[in-house]
Design a protein around this nucleic acid. Sequence first.
DNA 1: CTGTTAGCGCGTTCAC
DNA 2: GTGAACGCGCTAACAG
Lengths: 340, 340
Amino acid sequence: MRPTVHDIAAAAGVSLATVDRVLNQRPGVRHVTREKVETAIRELGYIRDVAAANLAKGRTYPLVFILPASDNSFMHGLNAEIRQAVLRSPAERTDIRTIEVPAFDPAALVSVLEELSREKPCGIAMVATDAPEVRAAVDKLVRERFPIVTLVSDLTGSLRHHYAGVDNIAAGRTAARLLGRFLGPRKGEIAVLAGSMLVRDHRERLEGFAAVMAAEFPHLAILPVLEGRDDPEVAHRLVADALGNAGIIGVYSLGAGNRGLIRALKEKTVDRTLTVIAHELTAHTRAALVDNTIDAILNQDAGHEVRSAIRVLKAKADGLAVIEAQERIRLDIFLKDNLP
Amino acid sequence: MRPTVHDIAAAAGVSLATVDRVLNQRPGVRHVTREKVETAIRELGYIRDVAAANLAKGRTYPLVFILPASDNSFMHGLNAEIRQAVLRSPAERTDIRTIEVPAFDPAALVSVLEELSREKPCGIAMVATDAPEVRAAVDKLVRERFPIVTLVSDLTGSLRHHYAGVDNIAAGRTAARLLGRFLGPRKGEIAVLAGSMLVRDHRERLEGFAAVMAAEFPHLAILPVLEGRDDPEVAHRLVADALGNAGIIGVYSLGAGNRGLIRALKEKTVDRTLTVIAHELTAHTRAALVDNTIDAILNQDAGHEVRSAIRVLKAKADGLAVIEAQERIRLDIFLKDNLP
DNA sequence: CTGTTAGCGCGTTCAC
DNA sequence: GTGAACGCGCTAACAG
């Protein structure tokens, strides 16, 4: 049988209450007594039963998700996954609240973070906007011992405990290699459609993409980036314009708002030799992959990201370790053959 | 607050014991009483606290993993993941035992399954060998209410509750498209290296591969399959021989034993225009991907498979639902840019 | 058939 | 500083 607090108490010659104080690092124990208990814990190989502890405490995990108020399929999907998690709350003892903040607005994000400091959730998951003041606000919360996980978009250089999202540089590099290999020795130009260069994940994807393109596919020229603001209408106009250029043989769409891209591509049915790589699997991109308008989709699994963020926050709140491999968010590559 | 058994008991006007009997479908309750309790459960929206129940029962989940005694990297990796799960056992209340059976030996597998019927584990995960007698043995166990999950290799047509592995037909199709797209318009022959056509997952990969090749890349001809028995030495000899054929421009390795394949490829450095797709990310295939000997690796995450099998078996043992999306084992596609 | 009671492993009052 | 006693939500004897 696994040792329990009783065994520890007996071994250390103290009472249950004292063991408990030591376990939960509470004051009111003499130094020598504490040592005795800690020795017993080590020697018996005691492992605390978190489930029993939570039962006794009636513990729940109040968690906050901070998301940008963006109206694109990916954010809708992320929201849906959070709602699924809310449905599981009773079983997981979580108590999840979502806060929407204006997108690309560091000030708004900071003020929400400051409020949270008073609310005392036991963990915060946030889609980070990359700005110094946000970094400062996050670091402050971390120092106040709030577990914080960035979601989808990271805040490099901050003290956040964990990032639940894909490696966007690797994603860009992968897109470049797929495009380069699919195009083979053909020479030509590549159009790149992004949401905004103000968002870190988009910048990183472009960075990785450009690096591999330059190093390994120098016969392909990257055209100036089109910023579609993740808006289907804007994207459509930009891409339709750009496709006037007959030299284009490939497209990399690294942001959201692919509905517009796809429409522009279909209107351009004359030359169906365009090779296209896009991000995020949605109903639209999926259909486009199936009908050969898109050649490959790079994706991050929003469900995995949300579940992972919750697991990590709970673990941090309890001071427990996580299974690293399980929390690594993979870059999914979908061709029409391996769609889920 | 969430309703508890006490609330149910009060609402139904019975005692805790009766509520418990109803909850656990135990006999000794009159039909009308049972109805009353069930009504109360429904009306109060009662959700059972599994953690508390397990605490009270001192419950553990004795699980058995049945693996083939194969000496290749993938099986070693799978074994390692199971050992990791064993280390987590105290926290997860599992009690995991591994049984090795001779590979490709239906009779041995059946006899192990028959023994298990007496041992009464609360769940069985098995790498299935595809044979009618195995199917019969599995179906018998399922009828005796043992939760059974197939791992890595499925047993189609059986009553197993779940399959924790990738869709191998999709994997083969994906390999074909990658190879076809990477090769572009070049004409030539494709060598295929398998372990054995007696194993279902290898057959399925080939089936998917051949289908897409025939339909979409008719200018590429598939040569007769080389069966390397997942043995590096055999694979090396077969591939080295085959590469004497100058018409070969691509290789698909759909089984294990890639060490031999890679050696053969490196010896053939004269023509470095071969495009190669292989299965399973191991130290060897990884190195070969990095040094451009291999162009893409298709992989199944053994860690995910093991963790998923455990989650599913526990859920089935408790009669609970699983999160389907979480238990879907994805086909990982690795290029040198997105290696973990 | 049904109810009472004593725990499971832990946290938390309160006394001492 | 320390300890005894009760309760978290549920199950399992044992009475009745």
